[in-house]
Simulated assay, not measured.
Amino acid sequence: MATSREAGASRAHRVLACLESRKNLTGSACGLVGLALTFTGIAGAYWPIVVAGLYGAGALIAPPERPAAPAFPDPSSQLDEVRGDFITLREYLTSVELPPAASGQLTELLTRYEALLDPGWVADALATDPESVYVLARAVRQDVPEAVDAYVRTRWWTRLAPASEPPERHLVRQLGVLFDEADTLAVALRETESHRQQTHTRYLEERRGHRPGAS
Results as ranks from 00 to 15, higher is better:
M1E: 14
A7E: 12
G8K: 10
A9L: 14
R11F: 15
R11A: 14
R11E: 15
H13R: 15
R14M: 14
L16S: 11
A17F: 02
E20F: 12
N24Q: 11
L25G: 05
L25V: 07
C30E: 08
C30Q: 02
G31E: 06
L32I: 02
V33W: 00
L35S: 00
L37F: 03
F39V: 01
T40E: 06
G41Q: 00
I42V: 12
A43P: 06
A45G: 14
Y46N: 02
W47K: 12
P48E: 05
I49K: 07
V51Q: 11
Y55Q: 11
G56Q: 10
G56D: 12
A57D: 14
G58D: 13
A59E: 13
L60N: 10
P63M: 05
E65F: 07
A68Y: 00
A71F: 14
D74H: 07
P75C: 07
S77A: 13
S77T: 10
Q78I: 04
Q78T: 01
L79V: 05
L79N: 05
L79M: 11
E81L: 14
V82E: 02
G84A: 13
D85W: 03
F86G: 01
T88H: 07
R90K: 12
E97V: 15
E97D: 14
L98Y: 09
L98R: 08
P99N: 03
P100A: 09
A102Y: 08
A102H: 09
S103V: 00
G104S: 09
G104D: 03
T107N: 04
E108M: 07
L110K: 02
L110A: 05
L110E: 09
T111L: 15
R112C: 00
A115G: 03
W121K: 15
V122G: 06
A123T: 09
A123S: 09
A123W: 05
A123E: 10
L126H: 12
L126P: 02
D129R: 07
P130K: 01
S132F: 05
S132M: 06
V133T: 04
V135K: 15
V135Q: 09
V135C: 07
A137S: 14
V140K: 06
R141H: 08
D143F: 02
V144C: 05
P145D: 05
A147R: 03
A150N: 11
A150T: 08
Y151W: 08
T154P: 04
W156D: 15
W157R: 14
R159A: 13
P162C: 04
A163D: 06
A163P: 12
S164V: 15
S164G: 15
E165A: 09
P166I: 03
E168V: 13
E168Y: 11
E168T: 03
R169T: 08
H170I: 13
V172F: 14
L175F: 13
V177E: 10
L178F: 08
F179N: 10
E181R: 06
T184L: 04
L185K: 02
A188G: 08
L189M: 03
L189G: 01
R190M: 01
E191R: 02
S194N: 01
H195A: 03
H195T: 04
R196V: 06
Q197P: 00
Q198C: 03
T199H: 01
T201Q: 06
R202N: 14
L204N: 03
E205R: 09
E206P: 00
P212T: 07
A214V: 09
A214T: 04
S215A: 12
